[in-house]
Amino acid sequence: MAEKLQNLVVVTPARVVFTDEVRMVSARSVAGDLGILPDHAPLITTLKTDVVRIQKDGRWRHMAVSNGFMEAKNNRVVILADAAEMAEEIDSDRARRAKERAEERLRSKASEIDLVRAEAALLRAMARLKAIDMAGSGRH
């Protein structure tokens, strides 16, 4: 029997990043890791800037998601995020440079606003690098 699927849509203000039928969505919410399988109870949550994993036909795909929200309802999962990219879309050099830049800024004692911004940038870069790493190693 074919496995039961659910619809996943990932949207950012700039574009629709992902839309397809999937088996499982695994994400890190502010309260902990969540795995959403079909027929999940209605849920709304805030996501951490981290990797969201998607499983379909036994294969995992990885996606870096920044400042997201996730809603699950009627076998439809919607992720709203400031930014999101599939692992294969991420420019690893750029992410690495962004990470170094953010770390540099955190070390220098900048103003409070800059620190908040640098921290957010660091989290984003780390999520991107993690997505590439996980996709590359086949780990999930």
Binding site: V30, I44, T45, T46
Partner: peptide
Amino acid sequence: EPLYIFEPSAEAV
């Protein structure tokens, strides 16, 4: 309306 689960809470989201 279906009952929603909020993580961590409706206010926080």
